[in-house]
Computed example of a mutant assay.
Amino acid sequence: MPVISAPHAFNEGRLYIDLRSIFGRSLYLKCEGFNFAGSIKLKAANEMVETAEREGVLTPDSILVESSSGNLGVALSMIAASKGYRFLCVTDSRCNLSTRLLMEALGSEVHIIADLDANGGFLGRRLDYVRALCASDDRYVWLSQYTNPGNWRAHYRTTAPEIAQEFPRLDVLFVGAGTTGTLMGCARYFRERRRPVRIIAVDSVGSVSFGGKPGRRMIPGLGMSMRPPLLDESYVDEVIRVEEVDTIRACHRLARRGFLFGGSTGTVVSGAMDWLARHDTRGLTAVAIAPDLGERYLDTIYQANWLQGLYGDDLLDSEEVTTGPRGAEPLPRTPGRRPKPQEGTA
């Protein structure tokens, strides 16, 4: 029986879902949302905070500050509350309302950036605000998830070994690309041990992490509006880009079978299934990492008016959309005002 005294001391890392019965192809989904922060970001947050404490960067008078689209902000809010630090999360208008409220419930302050930067995203503005804040008061400590090696080290030490232990004959690993901490940590682990694992990065269309033109992205989590400083493409075998409509369809298809996951997970699953459909998978062992759960997306990905306003009626008519029990008639849609789209990238 686990007994803990701090919320970050618990994290279930051995739960996998076999998606064959849902998608018709074998894929083991590693579920990383079963902790008190609700996402894989707990690992990076804990690693970065503990390193800063060991190095004397964090003191009792410090105020943690970080730029986050949501999940890392929640993880840091939880850790800060547990350890007695003040925390300010700098996010943007795409951050889910439930995520903002959760951070505030944990005692954190949330600052929302609403202006787009020169690249058509919010990240540049968020980082400018954090830099100005740190320059104004030396009590602020910025962990900088985008450049902090503790971000990838967390997954080198935990996520990758967990997968390797359960799947000694792993062939393909699908990892979502945001800051690329999870991607780089796992890729480095398998490369250094000379394991013949094919590393597939899954990114969002509109992200510029691996090059290309920036585009509108409304689902927070994966993707960047700048090249991730932690990224080393020599460790990546292939990149798959997923349209947001396909992210949403994957989320709803999972929900129709009782598995409520977040947008990052929907993106990874959609990209993985696309790759598996184009390759000979006989005898292939494939794993994908599910970074988050779906409760924080109830007012976006799982909300009919939000979907209609941004993506139109055709998406809602898809069989993957959650309309009721399998085999039942679609539930009537709730009338309401469609939200005005807000463009931007994480």
Rank of each mutant, 00 (worst) to 15 (best):
L222V: 10
L222G: 02
L222K: 03
S225Y: 03
S225H: 04
M226T: 11
R227H: 15
R227P: 08
R227K: 15
P228S: 10
P229D: 02
L230C: 07
L231P: 01
D232S: 06
E233C: 12
E233D: 14
S234R: 13
Y235K: 04
Y235V: 05
Y235D: 03
E238T: 08
E238F: 12
E238A: 13
E238H: 14
V239Y: 04
V239C: 07
I240F: 05
R241N: 04
V242A: 03
V242R: 00
V242L: 06
E243W: 11
E243I: 09
E243N: 13
E244C: 08
E244W: 08
E244M: 08
V245Y: 03
D246S: 09
T247L: 15
T247I: 15
I248G: 01
R249S: 10
R249M: 11
R249K: 15
C251G: 04
C251K: 00
C251T: 05
R253V: 03
R253M: 12
L254F: 13
L254Y: 08
A255Y: 08
G258K: 09
G258A: 09
F259W: 10
F259T: 07
L260R: 03
L260F: 15
L260T: 09
L260I: 15
L260V: 15
F261T: 09
G262P: 08
G262A: 09
G263I: 06
G263D: 04
G263K: 01
S264A: 11
T265A: 04
G266D: 02
G266N: 03
T267K: 02
V268W: 01
V268G: 01
G271Q: 00
G271D: 00
A272V: 05
A272H: 02
A272Y: 02
M273H: 10
M273N: 05
M273V: 08
M273T: 03
D274R: 14
D274N: 11
D274K: 13
W275G: 00
W275T: 01
R278A: 14
H279P: 07
H279W: 11
H279C: 13
R282A: 13
R282I: 08
R282C: 09
G283F: 14
G283I: 12
G283A: 12
L284R: 10
A286W: 06
A286T: 09
A286G: 11
V287C: 06
A290W: 00
A290D: 02
A290N: 06
P291Y: 04
D292Y: 03
D292M: 04
D292I: 02
D292H: 04
D292N: 06
L293H: 06
L293Q: 06
G294D: 04
G294V: 07
E295P: 09
E295G: 12
E295K: 12
E295V: 15
R296S: 10
Y297F: 13
Y297C: 01
L298K: 07
I301Y: 00
I301A: 01
I301P: 00
Y302E: 04
Y302F: 15
Q303F: 14
Q303S: 12
Q303E: 15
A304Y: 11
A304C: 11
W306R: 07
L307W: 03
L307F: 08
Q308I: 10
Q308A: 13
Q308W: 11
L310M: 09
L310Q: 02
L310G: 02
Y311P: 05
Y311L: 12
Y311W: 14
G312A: 13
D313C: 08
D314M: 08
D314E: 15
L316F: 13
D317I: 05
D317T: 10
S318R: 15
